[in-house]
Design a protein around this nucleic acid. Structure first.
Ligand code: MN
Ligand code: MN
Ligand code: MN
Ligand code: MN
Lengths: 217, 217
DNA sequence: TGAAATAATAAGGTCAGCCATAATATTTTT
DNA sequence: AAAAATATTATGGCTGACCTTATTATTTCA
């Protein structure tokens, strides 16, 4: 057992696919998220296909195989355990934990992962509100809907924040849009314009692409 | 400030040089320690020379510049802080902490390093007995002599273990040769033969190359 | 001092993971 | 049904960090 160790690049592609939710992921979206040209992402998908980690249906998108899904879940497990450690124990700013954990995740042996999980008390969720897969890749998919699709006038509670870019996380942090926060959608501007929210008594403007990353219930 | 981020490979060469003690390091020894051919190590030394991290005097060896020394100290700082965390908090077996920390060290941002140091209570020494450089690269070089040079009949205390290979560390761990342990040199076989030690009332054979890694006082 | 050992250089390759540019193929829109 | 937009594939290149196989330089040892 124990795979011949995947490269950081491979792990990031798999994780990105898992983060981009259920299924067929357009290679262009992957490329965008990973900061790589579509041609490069295509090449990489060919390699991952040869390794049996993904299947690519041209013009439809790319899907994780079971093997790929397990590997991705394991990366997410490491990522989110480190997020817990960085936030709860090292007291690192919420907006930065994703980025720091994203480096550590690739440098973490299975034995360290499990010892870390035990040290942290086997948490089920990370500070961004996302579930932490168990050691076997088991996963309870996050319920809730995107704030983007929330009707004007509704009051909702933030369950998770799916953003990964530090500057986006920083903006959300500054505006108080964190897991557990209750907020109200005051207005949705036309033409895909921003939402206006009420958060902690303050009005906050939030573009739709950012709102998409905020999962509410 | 803040260097454009060094590759893992670069950091490992610098760290190996620092670990190989003070001065001109033979490129062949470096190559050996890093598991690389002498030709490859030579190439790498040329690159590091171009970056101002080392100076190479042909047929004499290679030396860290001040810039290289600082970078190396910083890698050692990260390495040894992680060793403390893995050993004291995650309860990972002593013989394995070097290897695991050796992965994490390259994935640790300065802000994480300092938060980790604070979390650990700014330890001055790692579980292998080596000093932890401070945030500015300050270093109190480890005193003591190698067990290899210890006269027969002497009783000494282990101050540090400089080995890095997991199997070597495992052997020393199994024989109880850990920092703080008191032991006596019973015999030194001729022709570079092994030492016979008394450790905790047991006789232990230790080859000279292993004995070299054991620093005593 | 000459031979043997060791170190350094030169030359040519490999491999992963990127890039750009250009040619096709497919889907979407008008 | 064309035209426009998007996706895919084909080529050719690049860089870092490795490797092997010479060749040359220096040091060490007999
Ligand atoms: Mn990552
Ligand atoms: Mn390392
Ligand atoms: Mn070449
Ligand atoms: Mn090619």
């Amino acid at each position: 057992m124990s795979l011949p160790h995947m490269s950081e690049s491979t792990e990031m592609y798999l994780k990105a696919m898992a983060e981009l939710g259920d299924h067929p992921v357009a290679i262009a979206r992957l490329a965008e998220r990973l900061g790589v040209t579509p041609v490069s992402a295509n090449e990489m998908m060919r390699r991952l296909g040869e390794q049996g980690l993904v299947t690519h249906t041209p013009y439809k998108g790319v899907t994780l195989t079971e093997k790929g899904r397990e590997a991705a879940a394991n990366v997410l497990r490491r990522q989110r355990l480190w997020e817990v450690f960085l936030f709860e124990h090292l007291k690192i700013e919420w907006a930065k934990i994703y980025e720091f954990a994203c480096s550590l995740e690739h440098a973490t042996a299975p034995e360290v992962t499990e010892a870390l999980a035990a040290f942290l008390g086997n948490p089920k969720v990370c500070p961004r509100g996302n579930p932490i897969p168990d050691a076997n890749g088991g996963f309870e998919p996050l319920g809730g809907r995107s704030l983007r699709e929330t009707a004007v006038g509704k009051t909702v509670r933030v369950r998770a924040v799916n953003a990964t870019a530090t500057d986006v996380l920083k903006y959300l942090q500054d505006k108080g849009i964190l897991p557990g926060q209750t907020l109200k959608v005051l207005e949705a501007a036309p033409l895909d314009g921003p939402l206006t929210l009420s958060v902690n008594g303050k009005e906050v403007a939030l573009g739709l692409s950012m709102a998409e990353f905020v999962i509410v219930e």
